[in-house]
Each structure stands twice: as structure tokens, then as C-alpha cells.
Amino acid sequence: MAIQEFVTLRLAHQLLGIPVLSVHDVLKPHKITPTPLAPDWVEGVLNLRGKIVTAIDMRRRLGLPPRKITTGFGMSIVIEYQGEPYSLLIDSVCEVLALDDENFERNPVTLDSRWRQASAGIYQLQNELLIILDVERLLDLDFSIAA
């Protein structure tokens, strides 16, 4: 029985998880410089301790309704993909969960295609389901949301 830890986060009420080891930072709202002409899910770039980090709007990326303006910039989680840092903008960060592999399951085949692409699998928690994000898929340009 293997235990894995995940940082969990909320995006439009859905609970999502990212393996704790791949999370570099959790950021408060930051000043973001927009990058016009980039895909709409690229929010812009920001300076994280002298490093330039590309900010990804997760709601847009997953085809969710945009965040209400009143909530301002949400929290973000910094991950690294192919040596480059990316900051994933989300609604809020929740706790870190240690989960047993036993509860891990593949995506149900009936899952909506955009979610199926972004999800590496699902953990059954007591009260709800936790979707594990496939970070590499998310940052792949070819990955498009067929909404």
C-alpha cells in the first residue's frame, strides 16, 4: 500500500489535486503582465523572485466560466514543466491530503472529454471526488478543449 500526498485546490467548486512533490510554490495574488495574442488561457507573465513565470488561467484552460471579477486574482500554484515554471491560477488552495493508492481509479469513460484529458485519475474521498490534474497535458499546446 503506497501513500501519496497531494495539494488540493478548488476550481469552480470542483476539488482538484496536484502531487505535492511537483508543487514548487503557492503564491498570493501577484501582479501579472499580460501577453497579448497568446492563447486566452495564458493570463500573462509574472516575476517570482527574479524568475519569469508564465501564469495559466485554469478556469479558461478547462473551459469553466470565468472567475467573478469581484474576487480579484486568486491564489496560484507554481509547478515546473520541462524546466520552465508555470503558475496555475485557481480559486483557492485547500489542505494537503495523504491518500492511499487503493482509492485511486481511472477516469470513468463517460467523463466529459475536456476533463478526461486534463485528469490523470480520480480519488474517492469520503464526501467528494478528487480529480488529479495531469499537469503535462494542461501545458501542452496541442491539448485543446473541445467544448
Binding site: T33, A38, G44, V45, I52, Q82, E84, Y86
Partner: peptide, 26 residues
């Protein structure tokens, strides 16, 4: 500094950098 790979195909940017005031600029 080179732009992130996901922005590479935007030929309009040759890179990005951090300015004196700490903000990123394209």
C-alpha cells in the same frame, strides 16, 4: 530571457525581461 515554450510560436515577442521596478515586460 526567452519566453516560455507555450508562447514560442508568437513571433511578435523576441523574449521577456524583468524591469528595474520588478515587473515583467514583454
Amino acid at each position: 530571457k526567452p519566453v516560455a515554450p507555450i508562447l514560442k510560436n508568437l513571433t511578435i515577442y523576441s523574449g521577456n525581461t524583468i524591469l528595474g521596478d520588478g515587473s515583467v515586460i514583454m
